[in-house]
Design a protein around this nucleic acid. Structure first.
Lengths: 203, 203
DNA sequence: ACCCGTCTGGGACGCTTGACCCACTTCGGC
DNA sequence: GCCGAAGTGGGTCAAGCGTCCCAGACGGGT
């Protein structure tokens, strides 16, 4: 094993843990499986991380950061109107889920697990606050770009968007029904766009 | 331990398992924890059930049946219009979640776990088909009662309703934010009701 | 009243788990 | 070059896991 600072090793372990959870589920994310994925000896684990629970905390943060990065990719999307833009963002999110279902399922498993662990119980709230923040940013950018304003509080709309994404993801993971998911996203885009009112063009 | 047929014992074990999962999470639902909850000796487990996985299959079926029963309770709801009826059903569902968060979280954990277990991988699809069926029935009854028709395919609307419920539940479980959840349900009811068109009264 | 199939439950097996000890190697500042 | 701090890794521990065995208790059909 190459020489590596404890901090770097902790990061590498968090990434390895996320890989294991995505591939085999959170039950399989044992210390041994994680170090095997990272190509480290078992003892490196407790040298870099106090406990398994602490590592999972890092993993959740990694997950949230990952979602944030994916969201910024959505900013590049071009569309004719706000409804089309929303539909595209939702569509590309679904593509992400389809491309790596295990990873998205890992998010849910981590959240559920955190809710059950006294030491991690604060994480899900922060995680969902971050999601809401991301949705808020996207909706704000969309409103600016397509010259509309939202006729309900932006925060409420962000919660709705998050709930729709979660619901669509959960449903697709369970059924793997692509058509139903696409039609659901159509309806979701309609719903969100229906709260946009065009601004009168000042130019 | 009272004398009991293997079939009855299996049923009792499934109920005990659900209790354990709701209270402590699926990770804690070990054979020992389950028989302790049921007040049975450990050996009764494998006398009544071939394996732990088989028992979990029973539990998922129990869960789906439970949701079905809860849904029929919603049929008693009275409201002035279809939008109000939908809002009431969603509201009483959220009350259910709030009253027993562990139980609702157990549903998600069971679904996620089933998706990871080769022997149970078929269950989530059936589970969500059942949810969709329930939503379809409720929407159908609502349309009849309030003299409206749905302007999108009923099945698609049922998927939307399921996704919204799942999303709202997940969000509330993570944040425990009652106000946000109520506002989300307001928007969800608006969305669903917006697809209802009044029928001209024949009387 | 017997008796055989059904049910009970204590005990045990082999294995995996999170955690951790400690002798060893490597590196950077002096 | 030397030496203390930092990093490595094999081996081990107790606890908990799913599963199984088997001697015994029970109860309904004959």
């Amino acid at each position: 094993m190459a020489r590596m600072s404890a901090t770097d090793r902790r990061e590498a372990l968090a990434r390895a843990a996320l890989t294991v959870v995505a591939r085999d589920g959170i039950q399989a994310a044992t210390t041994r499986a994680i170090v095997a994925e990272a190509g480290m000896p078992l003892a490196s684990f407790h040298y870099a991380v106090p406990s398994r629970e602490d590592l999972l905390r890092d993993v959740v943060e990694l997950v949230v950061a990952g979602e944030g990065a994916a969201t910024f990719g959505s900013l590049a999307i071009e569309a004719d109107d706000i409804r089309g833009a929303i539909r595209s963002v939702l569509g590309s999110y679904l593509d992400l889920v389809r491309a790596d279902p295990g990873r998205e399922q890992a998010m849910f498993e981590l959240t559920q697990h955190a809710l059950r662990s006294p030491g991690l119980a604060d994480l899900p709230a922060a995680q969902y606050a971050a999601y809401r923040e991301l949705a808020t940013t996207l909706l704000q950018v969309g409103a600016d770009r397509y010259r509309v304003r939202w006729d309900v509080p932006l925060g409420d709309l962000a919660v709705l968007a998050t709930a729709l994404s979660d619901g669509a993801t959960l449903g697709w993971l369970a059924t793997r029904n692509d058509d139903a998911a696409e039609r659901l996203l159509d309806l979701a885009a309609d719903t969100l766009a229906s709260h946009a009112t065009p601004l009168k063009e000042p130019s």
